[in-house]
Write a protein that binds this DNA or RNA. Sequence first.
DNA 1: CCCCCATGTGAGCCCGGTCTCAACCCTAGC
DNA 2: GCTAGGGTTGAGACCGGGCTCACATGGGGG
Lengths: 359, 359
Amino acid sequence: MSSNNSRRRDVTVADVAKAANVSKAQAARALGNYGAVSDDVRERVLAAAEELSYRPNELARSMNTGKSHTIGVVVGDIENPHFGLATRGITDTAKKSGYNVILVNTDEEQAAEVDAVQILLDKRVDGLIVAPASSTETEHLQSVYESGRPLVLLDRAANGLAAETVAVNTAGISYESTVHLLDSGHRRIAFISTLKSDSPFKAETQVDSSQISERLDGMFRAFSDKGLAFPHDLVRLNAGDADSIQKITRELLRMPDPATVVVASDGLIALSVLGAIQDLGLSIPEDVSFLMYDDFAWTRLTTPPLTVIAQPVYEMGVAAANALLRQIQGRKASGTAPAFEARLIHRGSVGPAKVLSNS
Amino acid sequence: MSSNNSRRRDVTVADVAKAANVSKAQAARALGNYGAVSDDVRERVLAAAEELSYRPNELARSMNTGKSHTIGVVVGDIENPHFGLATRGITDTAKKSGYNVILVNTDEEQAAEVDAVQILLDKRVDGLIVAPASSTETEHLQSVYESGRPLVLLDRAANGLAAETVAVNTAGISYESTVHLLDSGHRRIAFISTLKSDSPFKAETQVDSSQISERLDGMFRAFSDKGLAFPHDLVRLNAGDADSIQKITRELLRMPDPATVVVASDGLIALSVLGAIQDLGLSIPEDVSFLMYDDFAWTRLTTPPLTVIAQPVYEMGVAAANALLRQIQGRKASGTAPAFEARLIHRGSVGPAKVLSNS
DNA sequence: CCCCCATGTGAGCCCGGTCTCAACCCTAGC
DNA sequence: GCTAGGGTTGAGACCGGGCTCACATGGGGG
């Protein structure tokens, strides 16, 4: 009722102490439950705190404990359900241990990521979970790591950075699924990724993401194991917004020797690719086969349901958070990190390749 | 190179001052760009800061400015793309003004929400954006509002709470879409929502969410305008996990006088409902019609594509963040708040009702 | 030539907690 | 009776940056 004065002042330990007729030190002890406090004093202090509805200022507390009970999470795009789910795993786990999460989106921009890391450090987060936009430009992460601040990488590794990394064994599943496509008779396999790149993909291109590079390696290996040449012309990067993805898809499917399968690197890309295929009036898998990373519920609802590479995204979020919390609490890694495996789930979107010309 | 000592000490203004041979006050002025500082001193201080790679401790700064440049966002479920997208709108907007976001998930639990709000206040966030789990139990929000701390409600209103609210005009679109369903001959219209409730829905039930209650009101109105009785038995709450949703769906479609349309209250429910319909071997819209809230990309990829109620989710996130930032900066509301309108998008999942028996 | 005031500077308080330290009380042991 | 030692207690130092205040310097106006 008496609170429309502009300068709101919070109740502090000093206020509680005064109300309880004890020194600030005693009040702090009673509230913080440490040191020696007589029953009498404790009661008076707690009663006064209750009465004034005292709440400790976590900022002040963080200042001299050096612990903020907050972790920073830096991801490319929270709108992408892949990260949405991982974030859920992280926040759930963090919350259980009394930690909060500051979430920063980078739009997969390197500069934004560097900023984000800096700002989070300035806010004195207790640790960082980062899904690095680049696996090569990693000075900012390197310096975090060297400073000894807890750091866990999610989804992608960073070259030459020994930080704990939670990711799936991508090369393996990529190899396996490519073999499956090859066995189905496909040779013109297209791969579309959001990854930013200055120039179109060529045989000697070094991609800037461990995740994508592993996927490509798996594909290379599958082709070369069968003595086949890898179709470099069908790897498309820079698939940013819906429009560019649709454009890319049209190109891939209308070129002289078109792709017979499209592999979408994530769920967002998949949606645009499928839209484009629909617009072109093509049907899956008769006209073109389709494979995507991540198993979202909607992939079971299309006609046909989609063949996907399922990744334990939520569990990886949980694991990343646990690893970070362990580091924060100074505990050593408990044995070996669990390896996360992706699974190829056969549904109906991969069919035999159309037999047109077999050179 | 010389940094493996356990107790990491950050560089402070005092360190910079010492290195630049000036007082702490002068260093602070030079760094903070305020007060009077000679060019000579400024240069020396900035050089020293650079040299030592000084970074201000935001915690300390927050302590006496009272500003943390952090806002708290409390939502029911970040995994739900509805909130994922809204969160994206919030973080994008906050970032532009130099604010960070602490994200808390409540799982739509009232107790978790109360905790979350308290913790965020303890961390001295500059303001809160909350999608309240309940529109009736709002003491915690009420006290935030009364304390004068900036607060914006998202998606749902809270009874008797004058806090700024960013939400769509739900009653209107619900009315409109129900009329559409009635005009298509449907009478048995089922509505499924996640909303928690102690008892099954009955005619006199007061639902605990402004959002759901408006939707139901719109439906009531449409029925009564046509002089028809509203089928209360087809309103199902507590549709929490995938299993319970599938069970509910089976019940609704197998009862003696089954539902001829199912309206899914959000995208997560929709996925489970569609899965159940698929499992039952029913086809849309021949056997049963389907309508859902939120227009996600995948709704265009099913066969048939789904008729949806599109809500400007991202834009609402942006608006909520802008409103909050305005409050934080003490600016008055700029005219009237923009009203957000949902749109009914006709695709293919609503067909004429099966004519079986017309009493 | 003196006063006024703008500019520059450093000492030190403040925010709201945590925690150390020295002093105090009281009782048990000699 | 005296002291050692445990339980209690309050004063006050810190954390790190913001900011006020008192004080010096020096140039311009009267």
